[in-house]
Amino acid sequence: MADAPPLEIHDLTVAYHKKPVLWGVDLVVPPGKLVGIVGPNGAGKSTLIKAAMGLLPVSSGWVKVFGESVAKNFRRVGYVPQRESVDWDFPVSVMDVVLMGRYGKLGLLKRPTKDDHDKARECLDKVKMLPYANRQISNLSGGQQQRVFLARALAQESELYFMDEPFAGVDAATESAIIALLHELRAAGKTLLVVHHDLPTARNYFDMLLLLNMRVVAFGPTEEVFNYETLQKTYGGRLTILSEVAEAVRVKG
């Protein structure tokens, strides 16, 4: 299955409390692409990547990562969660967090070795956070926290990355550092799916865009997809009928 696409999603439907958040998503992501996932609030962007990684129960459909179920291939998947999803007062150092990226490869009862420490240090250096390695994580700014998360993902050495709003609430310097890093990863043949909330920059940052509003509105190379019509479809009022139906399903169901 060497030729299997990094990510293939077929007819994925996810519901929270009987209310559907994603409907019939079909998606095949080619390798080595930097894909932006864009859509209005509540469009199911985070839900899509969480469901793709098997973190959420799905109502129907399936997900394949490099031709296999994600449970079998989790070592080839890296994840950068939203920054707010963790408690930054947690008693760990920057180094500890980055080392967590190595944990998945270690297996039971094993401790991180010197190689793992070297690798973690190398990843920290890539995001220019090496001087902070021994800091407690609550003493970091928002942008620095995001870079630590990126370093952890780098330490995972995966082939397919899911990133949930890595640009949210970071300073301009961090934003350009992150985008440089993403390009570097793409050049190394990795595939990246990045949830993004800012339309104007989305156009410049990504090779391909996935316009999402409960279902896939459009997916393709940025220059083809990024036009008035599709954006109107994604953000405009036409899809309100879908959410009305969803509400009706919820009330009746």
Binding site: D11, T13, A15, K18, P20, W23, G24, V58, S59, S60, G61, R215, V245, A248, V249, K252, G253
Partner: peptide, 24 residues
């Protein structure tokens, strides 16, 4: 009862949107 009716939707392959609409 509600949960198992949800599951019916999930088990039908190729259902997705149309199934959810039908079940409502």
């Amino acid at each position: 009862a509600v949960r198992s009716s949800n599951r019916v939707v999930g088990n039908k392959s190729g259902g997705g949107v149309s199934d959810l609409l039908n079940s409502s």
